[in-house]
C-alpha cells in the first residue's frame, strides 16, 4: 500500500500554497494565482478547496466538511474520508467543535468564532468575467478599481426584474477595495462574511486562484441607494426543528405536491431537535 505524505500534497507544494494564502490574507479580496496541482478528484469538484485545506491542516485540527450545508452528501463524505485517511486528523459534523471547515455553497448557520478557518470552494473566482472575458483586462480593472461595469450588471437586473436578480454568488467589496466573488453561497449568507471572527479562505483549483478575507474585515454586498441589498426570507419555520431565520431547502415528498422546508445546515438542524428524533414528513 502506498503511503501518502501528510495531507497528500508534498511539502514544497504546501509551502507554495501557504505563501499564496499569506499573500491573499495580506490583500483581502485580491485573487492570488497559484500553481494548482492535480488532485485525486476532478476539476469542478473542489480541488481548490482541498488544496487549501491540505496546506493549512495540522495534526491537532478537527475537520468538518459540508456540501450545500449537509455533512452526509457524497462529496462531503468523500472529502472528509480523504483527509481522515491522509492525515489521521479528527473529523466532526459539529460546527462548534470544528477548527477547520471546508464547504461548498453554504456558510454554517452556527456563528463561527475566532480561531476557526472556513475554506470555501470556488468555481469561477473572477466577478467581472461575465462582462470581460480577457484576463489581462480584468486584472487591470481590479488594479485601477474600475468596477463601474459591475454596477451595470445590477442596473440591468433592476431594469429587467425590478430588483437585483442575483441570489447566489452575490458580488461584494472587501475592505472597501477589492471586488470579490464570494463563491456560490446564497446571498442569504453574505452578511456572515462581514466582520466574521473566523478566517475565510477561498480556493479555485481549475482557475488557479486563492483569495482570503481575514477576520473582522468589512465585506459589503453591492447595491444601489434606492435598491438596498436584501436577503431571502421564508414565511414559515423549518418543518423539522422549527428554526426561523435559517436558510431552508425545499423537498418534494410525494406525487401530490407535498413539500417540506427544512434547514440546509444539517448539523444546525439536528442540534435543535430532541436527541434520537428521526425526521418525519408532515
Amino acid at each position: 500500500m502506498t503511503r501518502y505524505n501528510f495531507a497528500y500534497l508534498d511539502e514544497q507544494t504546501k509551502r507554495m500554497i501557504r505563501r499564496a494564502v499569506l499573500k491573499a490574507v495580506a490583500v483581502p479580496g485580491y485573487q492570488v494565482p497559484f500553481g494548482s496541482r492535480e488532485m485525486p478528484l476532478s476539476y469542478g469538484w473542489g480541488t481548490g478547496g482541498v488544496q487549501v485545506t491540505a496546506s493549512v491542516i495540522g495534526p491537532t485540527d478537527v475537520l468538518k466538511v459540508i456540501d450545500q450545508g449537509a455533512d452526509d452528501t457524497t462529496n462531503a463524505v468523500s472529502i472528509r474520508k480523504f483527509f481522515a485517511r491522509t492525515t489521521g486528523v479528527a473529523t466532526t459534523t459539529s460546527t462548534e467543535a470544528a477548527t477547520l471547515i471546508q464547504t461548498r455553497h453554504r456558510i454554517p448557520e452556527t456563528p463561527l468564532r475566532e480561531g476557526q478557518i472556513l475554506v470555501l470552494q470556488v468555481p469561477i473566482p473572477e466577478p467581472l468575467r461575465w462582462l470581460e472575458p480577457r484576463e489581462a483586462e480584468t486584472r487591470k480593472m481590479h488594479a485601477l478599481e474600475e468596477y463601474g461595469v459591475m454596477y451595470v450588471r445590477l442596473y440591468e437586473d433592476i431594469t429587467r426584474h425590478g430588483r437585483v436578480a442575483q441570489t447566489y454568488e452575490y458580488p461584494v467589496i472587501v475592505d472597501g477595495r477589492y471586488l470579490m466573488r464570494p463563491s456560490p453561497i446564497p446571498k442569504f449568507d453574505n452578511p456572515k462574511l462581514d466582520r466574521s471572527p473566523a478566517l475565510l479562505l477561498f480556493g479555485a483549483g481549475r482557475e488557479k486562484r486563492i483569495y482570503a478575507v481575514p477576520p473582522w474585515t468589512r465585506v459589503k454586498s453591492l447595491d444601489f441607494d434606492d435598491h438596498p441589498f436584501e436577503v431571502e426570507h421564508w414565511d414559515r419555520p423549518c418543518d423539522l426543528c422549527g428554526a426561523r431565520g435559517a436558510f431552508l431547502d425545499e423537498l418534494i415528498v410525494d406525487d401530490k405536491g407535498g413539500r417540506l422546508f427544512i434547514c440546509s445546515d444539517t448539523d444546525f438542524c439536528a442540534r435543535r431537535r430532541p436527541a434520537g428524533d428521526p425526521p418525519r414528513p408532515m
Binding site: 474600475e146 454596477y151 451595470v152 431594469t159
Partner: peptide, 24 residues
C-alpha cells in the same frame, strides 16, 4: 449586450453614482 440605458449610465456608475433612479 446591455440596454441603452445601461450604456449611457455606465460612466456615471463608474464615477460613483449609486442611485438607480437618478442614473436612469
Amino acid at each position: 449586450n446591455v440596454s441603452a440605458g445601461a450604456n449611457v449610465g455606465e460612466r456615471l456608475m463608474a464615477l460613483g453614482a449609486r442611485h438607480y433612479g437618478r442614473v436612469r
